[in-house]
Design a binder for these strands. Structure first.
Lengths: 244, 244
DNA sequence: GTCTATACACAGATAGAC
DNA sequence: GTCTATCTGTGTATAGAC
């Protein structure tokens, strides 16, 4: 599967999930036609992402949203019952898709070395296709309800665990040098997140998602696969004091 | 200088800067006593950081702030002229301190290997002492005015450049393997940022700032100093396609 | 299904007493 | 220097026409 096929797959999933999430809200059975639902939910979500990613979800007024989505305020409230409800629906959108994609893509039993590369690439590809959503989820996490926050944290830890497990497996099979797998997984996740949080920076520098993926994989591999070279221990010794 | 001395130094700088920033606002010459100014500015800043980091700056009302800071709304407006003004002052606080600390700490001409380690540690130490501010600056960047955003981006690029320059120097002196220095600098910054953005995670795992610093330095060093081992090229070849 | 018009709560900001 | 009381705009949400 190349990047363009991957993109298509995710876009279809997005539409299905629009419908699925709307259908789970029994209070809004006013709208009947599936086509209308998908069309408007999509508009609303896209507009929300656009405005929120510019100035934040709290700063987005319903009047803003109404204009950007091309629907009146009255119409908007046929699709969700409150601004908070909209936020939760949108969060759920991305989570549902993410879980589905990662579940499908990583359920193979390859060699840990390849698996780690594939996990990094899959995460990056997904966050590339759904960049606005990933950015949104990252920046608006603290505006969520208590339950929403819990789910966001759980999701963070879950994807981190995917990396950690692969690293552990590599260590057990004697392929990777023995290191703190959880800490390594944490910084891998941090670097993946940087891809969608600082998208503007990489875009300006013409760094493609494949380029970034290749770099990350090599960077991580150097640490996992390398034997300890001469000056490493010297550097490590300098870790406890700021000045020597 | 160890971490506790470093902390003391930054705390003093913080108080000086409170006064300095207040004095630059000529409209507020009502308050005369320096002690009062520092005491209240400090309260206001701390309260702003506390509330904003919980639910966002936009979501913080002046009534919230008034309660948390222990000052009436009327009193608050003796220290700044608008909510936006408060935001800009607070942004400037951290920027001023950051520039001062990084300028002092990195103006040495050591060996690039040591320098890179020191740069990473200094950044981490500073973001550890001023964690609430760094988190705030990171999360609220998009609420800033146009000028404020420009300054934030400039600051991001400046600290990134500090890393990039050291890496370049190491490459030129033949100490580091030749790689994309800018991309490496970008991900180093991403990992440093993760330290203060996901503080909750590392705190729960009992990872100290020194532990994290040591890990980062080793991780980066493995990439900069290592010769290419056997399986690296294999991994890199896998970069263009998601599935092979 | 979608619109316009409106209710009513709460935001930021200030005036003037103490 | 700090407080209380109040002004005025804007926010979310809804009612009812079409």
């Amino acid at each position: 599967m190349n990047f363009s096929k991957f993109t298509q797959m995710v876009r279809l999933l997005w539409q299905d999930t629009c419908l699925e999430i709307f259908s789970d809200h029994p209070e809004h059975i006013k709208i009947k036609k599936e086509k209308t639902i998908v069309k408007n939910m999509d508009r609303i979500f896209k507009a929300t992402l656009k405005i929120s990613n510019e100035k934040g979800f709290q700063a987005m007024s319903m009047r803003n949203l109404s204009r950007e989505a091309g629907l009146s305020m009255g119409a908007l409230y046929a699709y969700f019952s409150s601004k908070e409800d909209l936020l939760e629906m949108l969060q759920r959108m991305g989570r549902t898709i993410t879980e589905q994609v990662l579940g499908e893509c990583l359920a193979t039993d390859e060699d840990p070395v390849e698996k780690l590369g594939k996990a990094i690439r899959t995460h990056l590809y997904l966050s590339e296709v759904l960049q606005p959503w990933f950015y949104f989820a990252y920046m608006e996490a603290k505006n969520l309800s208590e339950k929403g926050k819990e789910r966001a944290v759980a999701s963070e830890l879950l994807t981190e665990k995917i990396f950690a497990d692969i690293i552990l497996e590599g260590q057990e099979k004697g392929l990777f040098v023995h290191q703190d797998s959880r800490l390594l997984a944490a910084v891998i996740k941090a670097m993946v997140q940087d891809w969608y949080v600082k998208r503007w920076k990489y875009a300006k520098r013409n760094v493609s998602v494949d380029h970034y993926a290749r770099f990350l994989v090599e960077f991580v591999a150097a640490y996992c696969l390398a034997r300890e070279p001469a000056r490493r221990s010297e550097l490590r010794g300098a870790g406890d004091e700021l000045y020597r």
